[in-house]
Amino acid sequence: QVALSRTQVCGILREELFQGDAFHQSDTHIFIIMGASGDLAKKKIYPTIWWLFRDGLLPENTFIVGYARSRLTVADIRKQSEPFFKATPEEKLKLEDFFARNSYVAGQYDDAASYQRLNSHMNALHLGSQANRLFYLALPPTVYEAVTKNIHESCMSQIGWNRIIVEKPFGRDLQSSDRLSNHISSLFREDQIYRIDHYLGKEMVQNLMVLRFANRIFGPIWNRDNIACVILTFKEPFGTEGRGGYFDEFGIIRDVMQNHLLQMLCLVAMEKPASTNSDDVRDEKVKVLKCISEVQANNVVLGQYVGNPDGEGEATKGYLDDPTVPRGSTTATFAAVVLYVENERWDGVPFILRCGKALNERKAEVRLQFHDVAGDIFHQQCKRNELVIRVQPNEAVYTKMMTKKPGMFFNPEESELDLTYGNRYKNVKLPDAYERLILDVFCGSQMHFVRSDELREAWRIFTPLLHQIELEKPKPIPYIYGSRGPTEADELMKRVGFQYEGTYKWVNPHKL
């Protein structure tokens, strides 16, 4: 086992960053958080920038500027975001240094004079007029057009580079997404736009490419001749908990499936790229999406959770019991969808996408189930092999396979070949997804960000279904809070070829 401390991990990262040409360590950078008073800024962006600063992973002359409508001070920003920093008493001095680099400007999102004030403020910072500028839009999409237009007109660096990070949702359907994309691309070049999907920053999602293309053993079996089906799962054990009003506007397909799960599907299904260059990788992902037809209604199961009468606390409440959810809402909190990649490698292999709230566990994984062994000599005792990439929690890679049961006879039983990170790298604290992705933006690497043509294809696949749901308002199937979801989803999976045995229990190697 390799035991690495946080300091050692960050030392390795620093070495990698400083050796590259793309990370300008000594240049002045300004990180501007648009929507600095909001939840995302408070819980994710400010803490992430602090962790990067604490670990010495930001360029040395980096300033952080918050911008929002609320009249706040840096002290206010500190008060609301610091509880999420997880700072230790030993880091007190470092924390003071961090907040000394912070400033805040209040202004409207659609007022040109406010942006001119913001620009004057940035120019007044040390070497601010020639600094590289990175704008993070932690804002609702309704203000994107006004904000990007004003940034472009008043706040661009004339000497350094300018980059803009856009948070999902990128529209509600193909038409609104196209409108937003066309607007942003009329102001910024594609190499300046970073559409963030934080799932692409997760260690195991990034590991998929290495697993596939750096190991000879997987190449020959990664196709329709050997793989019976692919299941991509995202499960949350909690409901909307008072935030249903926002969720109800989008629903589970827009929230998770059309982005996170579809991105994971691309990494499983794509061909080997010409290189690890950002556009070479994204070219292959677009090719996969172009091979997927629009979702067919007979390959869809929609569910909505109801309270568990035997549960406790939140578990007793259904989705419609959330006071922020519109009365009688038919918005799905669970969806199972089957897609097919219609190309030579994957023809006929079902890709089953499942996601839901208020389920029995927290889990995100990719599961490849292989065909049955031909010419069975073990009297149907063999179960199908599976390769599982567990994204969260407890990152893991393992192969479910058959071995001989101890004893006199040739009785096979299920076991696993474990390729888990935790076994080799004991207690290594890896940077989280937002840390990686923000560092990628500083480096100018777009590999783990969504390109406009990729986004367009993703919406093309799901828009007809979303429009049909909005028009017909089908009643989702009720499922109990804390269950596996509607049984109809299991029946759909069985119908397209997935075999669920229920006889195997994964042993978490992190707890051995």
Rank of each mutant, 00 (worst) to 15 (best):
Ile477His: 13
Gly502Ser: 13
Asp376Cys: 07
Val397Phe: 11
Val450Arg: 02
Val366Gly: 00
Ala374Val: 10
Val337Arg: 00
Glu501Val: 08
Leu465Thr: 09
Tyr421Cys: 04
Pro431Ser: 09
Glu284Thr: 07
Glu344Gln: 11
Cys382Gln: 12
Leu339Arg: 00
Val286Asp: 07
Tyr481Pro: 05
Glu435Ile: 08
Pro486Leu: 06
Met257Ile: 09
Tyr305Glu: 00
Asn277Gln: 13
Pro350Tyr: 00
Pro406Thr: 06
Arg254Ser: 09
Pro486Tyr: 02
Leu437Asn: 03
Asn360Ile: 04
Lys405Tyr: 10
Lys317Thr: 15
Val388Glu: 03
Met408Ala: 06
Glu344Thr: 11
Glu413Ala: 11
Met257Lys: 05
Ala396Asp: 04
His448Asp: 08
Arg354Glu: 00
Leu466Arg: 00
Met402Pro: 03
Leu471Ala: 15
Asp279Met: 12
His467Ala: 13
Ser275Arg: 07
Leu455Gln: 03
Val397Gly: 01
Leu359Ile: 05
Lys473Arg: 15
Ser452Tyr: 05
Leu455Glu: 05
Tyr319Asp: 00
Cys382Lys: 12
Glu414Asn: 07
Leu471Cys: 15
Cys291Asp: 10
Gln392Ile: 03
Pro412Trp: 07
Trp506Ile: 02
Val301Ser: 10
Leu437Ile: 07
Glu457Ser: 09
Ala274Gly: 13
Ile477Trp: 10
Ile253Met: 13
Gly348Trp: 04
Gly348Tyr: 00
Leu465Ser: 08
Lys404Ile: 06
Tyr340Lys: 12
Asp322Gly: 05
Asp310Gln: 10
Val341Ser: 03
Glu342Pro: 13
Glu342Gly: 13
Thr487Met: 14
Lys285Leu: 01
Pro486Gln: 03
Arg354Ile: 01
Cys355Ile: 04
Leu439Arg: 13
Glu284Arg: 07
Lys429Ile: 13
Gln263Lys: 04
Val450Ser: 06
Leu267Trp: 02
Arg436Phe: 03
Pro412Ser: 11
Asn385Phe: 04
Val337Tyr: 06
Val397Pro: 04
Ala315Trp: 10
Val428Gly: 15
Leu267Phe: 05
Arg424Ala: 05
Arg451Ile: 03
Pro412Cys: 10
Asp255Pro: 02
Thr333Arg: 03
Gly307His: 08
Gly407Ile: 02
Leu320Val: 10
Leu455Gly: 06
Glu284Ala: 08
Asn385Lys: 02
Lys317Phe: 12
Asn394Arg: 08
Leu430Asp: 05
Gln499Arg: 12
His467Cys: 09
Val301Arg: 08
Ser445Met: 10
Ala315Pro: 12
Asn423Trp: 09
Thr420Asn: 12
Pro309Leu: 14
Asn308Tyr: 09
Gly485Thr: 00
Met257Trp: 00
Thr330Arg: 13
Leu466Ile: 11
Leu267Arg: 01
Gly307Val: 05
Ile352Lys: 00
Lys473Val: 10
Glu501Ile: 10
Arg390Trp: 03
Val288Gln: 07
Gly313Leu: 10
Arg451Thr: 04
Glu284Ile: 07
Thr276Gly: 12
Ile377Pro: 12
Asn411Cys: 09
Asn394Met: 09
Gly348Pro: 02
Arg367Met: 00
Leu387Thr: 05
Pro486Ile: 06
Thr503Ala: 07
Gly482Cys: 05
Glu386Asn: 04
Glu491Cys: 10
Val388Ser: 06
Lys429Val: 09
Glu472Thr: 13
Arg384Val: 05
Leu430Met: 15
Glu470Gln: 12
Val268Cys: 11
Gln446Val: 06
Pro478Thr: 09
Ser293Phe: 06
Tyr398Gly: 00
His260Ser: 03
Thr333Tyr: 04
Arg451Ala: 04
Thr503Met: 13
Asn298Tyr: 10
Leu471Lys: 15
Gly356Gln: 03
Tyr479Gly: 03
Pro406Gly: 06
Tyr340Asn: 14
Leu471His: 15
Thr333Trp: 03
Gln369Val: 08
Lys400Cys: 01
Val341Met: 09
Gly328Tyr: 12
Gln258Thr: 07
Ala332Tyr: 04
Glu284Val: 09
Ala269Trp: 01
Arg484Met: 00
Val496Cys: 10
Phe498Gln: 07
Met401His: 11
Pro350Leu: 00
Gln296Asp: 14
Leu353Glu: 01
Ala269Met: 04
Leu437Glu: 05
Thr324Gly: 14
Met401Ile: 12
Arg451Gly: 04
Lys400Gln: 04
Pro393Lys: 07
Asp310Trp: 11
Pro323Thr: 15
Ala489Leu: 06
Phe334Gly: 00
His260Glu: 01
Leu267Cys: 08
Cys266Lys: 03
Glu294Arg: 13
Thr420Asp: 15
Glu395Gln: 09
Gln258Pro: 05
Thr420Val: 07
Cys266Glu: 04
Arg282Asn: 02
Trp506Tyr: 11
Leu417Lys: 01
Val268Trp: 04
Leu320Tyr: 07
Ile352Met: 06
Arg436Gln: 07
Trp459Glu: 02
Thr333Asn: 01
Val281His: 03
Val300Leu: 15
Leu320Trp: 07
Ser452Trp: 06
Thr399Ser: 12
Glu413His: 10
Ile480Ala: 14
Met270Pro: 02
Ile352Arg: 02
Thr399Lys: 00
Gln296Tyr: 13
His379Pro: 15
Ile292Cys: 14
Ile480Asp: 13
Tyr398Asn: 02
Trp506Asp: 04
Asp376Pro: 10
Gly313Cys: 11
Ala269Thr: 12
Gly497Leu: 02
Thr316Lys: 13
Lys363Asn: 07
Ala396Met: 03
Asn394Trp: 09
Glu435Asn: 10
Gly502Ile: 06
Pro323Phe: 05
Glu454Met: 02
Asn360Leu: 04
Glu501Gly: 13
Gly444Glu: 07
Lys285Asn: 00
Val325Glu: 01
Thr403Ser: 14
Asn259Ser: 04
Val301Thr: 11
Phe351Leu: 05
Leu320Gln: 09
Gln369Thr: 06
Thr463Gln: 06
Asp255Phe: 03
Thr487Pro: 14
Pro486Asp: 04
Gly311Asn: 14
Thr399Ala: 13
Met270Phe: 07
Asp376Lys: 09
Asn394Glu: 14
Thr420Tyr: 05
Asn427Lys: 08
Tyr425Phe: 14
Leu466Gln: 05
Glu294His: 09
Glu342Leu: 13
Ala269His: 03
Asp440His: 07
Thr331Glu: 06
Val441Tyr: 00
Arg282Pro: 02
Leu437Lys: 01
Asn360Arg: 05
Leu265Thr: 07
Arg495Lys: 14
Tyr305Ile: 00
Met257Gly: 08
Asn308Gln: 13
Met270Asp: 01
Asp310Cys: 12
Phe410Trp: 15
Ala358Gln: 03
Cys266Ser: 13
Asn277Tyr: 13
Glu314Trp: 10
Val388Cys: 11
Lys290His: 09
Glu312Cys: 12
Pro431Asn: 12
Cys291Gln: 13
Arg254Gln: 00
Trp459Ile: 00
Asn394Val: 05
Glu342Ile: 10
Tyr319Arg: 01
Asp490Glu: 08
Gly313Ser: 10
Arg254Asp: 06
Trp459Lys: 02
Ser275Trp: 03
Asp283Arg: 01
Ala336Pro: 02
Val281Asn: 04
Thr324Gln: 12
Ser415Ile: 05
Arg460Val: 06
Arg282Gln: 00
Gly307Asp: 10
Lys429Gln: 12
Val286Ser: 09
Ser483Ala: 11
Leu419Pro: 01
Arg282Ser: 04
Glu488Lys: 09
